[in-house]
């Protein structure tokens, strides 16, 4: 089992920003920016799963892609195994590519429909290794075994498979080059409840077998509680809280984490009767025009005057426990609060 005290840092992300330009007018001049990821910092230890949660549009996918340098980050630093990725030149990046892979949400859209399963899984081997045809086929079979796909299906096409099996093909492909680090971007979101557990268990087994490190992106907070060792919560382009799974779920510090967790309906009618749900008012602001001060100040039930002026710093408030919120500054003024009502559900 993973232990943060003894583990080494595999991924180190510092003040990562990924802004997309907004162009308008006839000359398509840049008139603003979507601050999809706006200064996030975190580490991922070797062999662990870091869960990345938050509501749609908060920047999870952009963060995952920027970390793998599938985008050119606006600024910041990303290190994999001590090597800088954010600014690495093409050659170095190509050398590092095999170490870091991605599994996508929609197995349908991410697999080439005109390639066979063997072709899809073998493609990264063609590109990055000098294996003979025979060696490559052996490796493909090995990977199919590892993800629980029948070898007899090697010459079939993606559309002949169910969603769960297609996700297995995507995972086999991601494993082909023996990566150390895999970004899983909503890998189970498109799957049925009864199939999700199959894929999650497979990811866990593969992690144990090959010593993989995961960034597991999901909006499913219950599933992240199951799979992650530590969890980062994003809101409007920023990580607002990060901590070990159990403390974060049992005693969230950031008011957004608290509200988010309390909004998840439990599959248990009795718990609903007892729930003291925090219902946030309003919607998430646009990342092109975030509010002044704390990004959460427009919806925060515990908002204070300072929150509308100064963006709170993302700080380690207890060992391993990070939060960006003025409530956890040394001196804490009285709370005023937005009109969020805790309701008897």
């Amino acid at each position: 089992m993973f232990d943060a005290k003894t583990a080494k840092k595999l991924v180190e992300v510092r003040d990562l920003k990924m802004h997309f330009p907004i162009r308008s007018g006839l000359l398509r001049r840049v008139t603003g920016a979507v601050k999809a990821v706006d200064g996030v910092s975190f580490d991922i230890f070797e062999g662990e799963t870091l869960g990345l949660v938050g509501e749609s549009g908060c920047g999870k996918s952009t963060c995952g892609r920027a970390v793998l340098r599938l985008y050119e980050p606006t600024s910041g630093s990303i290190k994999l195994d001590g090597e800088e990725i954010a600014t690495a030149p093409f050659d170095k990046l190509r050398r590092l590519r095999p170490k870091m892979q991605m599994v996508f949400q929609d197995p349908q859209a991410s697999l080439n429909p005109r390639m066979t399963v063997a072709g899809i899984i073998g493609e990264p081997l063609m590109e990055h290794t000098k294996l003979s045809e025979k060696e490559r086929l052996d490796r493909i079979y090995q990977l199919m075994d590892a993800v629980g796909l029948n070898r007899d299906f090697a010459n079939r096409y993606p559309h002949e498979f169910s969603g769960g099996q297609r996700q297995r093909i995507g995972i086999a492909r991601a494993l082909a080059l023996n990566p150390k680090f895999i970004v899983c971007d909503e890998p189970i979101a498109a799957l049925d409840v009864s199939i999700q557990a199959q894929v999650v268990n497979l990811l866990e087994e593969l992690q144990d077998e090959f010593g993989l490190t995961y960034l597991f992106i999901s909006h499913d907070l219950s599933m992240v509680r199951h799979i992650a060792d530590r969890v980062a919560v994003m809101y409007l382009g920023k990580v607002v809280e990060l901590g070990a799974r159990d403390v974060l779920y049992d005693a969230p510090l950031h008011p957004y984490t608290e509200a988010l967790l309390s909004a998840v309906p439990e599959p248990d009618p009795v718990s609903h009767d007892e729930a003291n749900r925090i219902i946030l008012q309003g919607d998430v602001p646009s990342p092109a025009n975030p509010p002044q001060g704390c990004n959460f100040c427009t919806r925060c039930p515990k908002v204070m005057a300072i929150c509308r002026q100064i963006d709170p710093e993302f700080r380690e408030v207890k060992p391993g426990r990070f939060v960006a919120c003025h409530l956890y500054n040394e001196t804490r003024p009285e709370t005023a609060g937005n009109a969020a009502q805790p309701t008897e559900a």
Binding site: S162, G164, D192, V193, S194, I195, Q196, A197, Q198, V200, N201, E204, L221, S222, M223, R225, H226, D246, Y249, L261, V264, E266, P267, D268, S271
Partner: peptide, 25 residues
């Protein structure tokens, strides 16, 4: 019964391994 056992919970005890419903609909 299996559906109720296969979904993870946000509170309470955390199961080590998710119960799987094998196969397809």
């Amino acid at each position: 019964r299996m559906l109720l056992e296969t979904v993870p919970h946000i509170r309470g005890e955390r199961q080590q391994k998710l119960r799987v419903i094998q196969g397809q609909p």
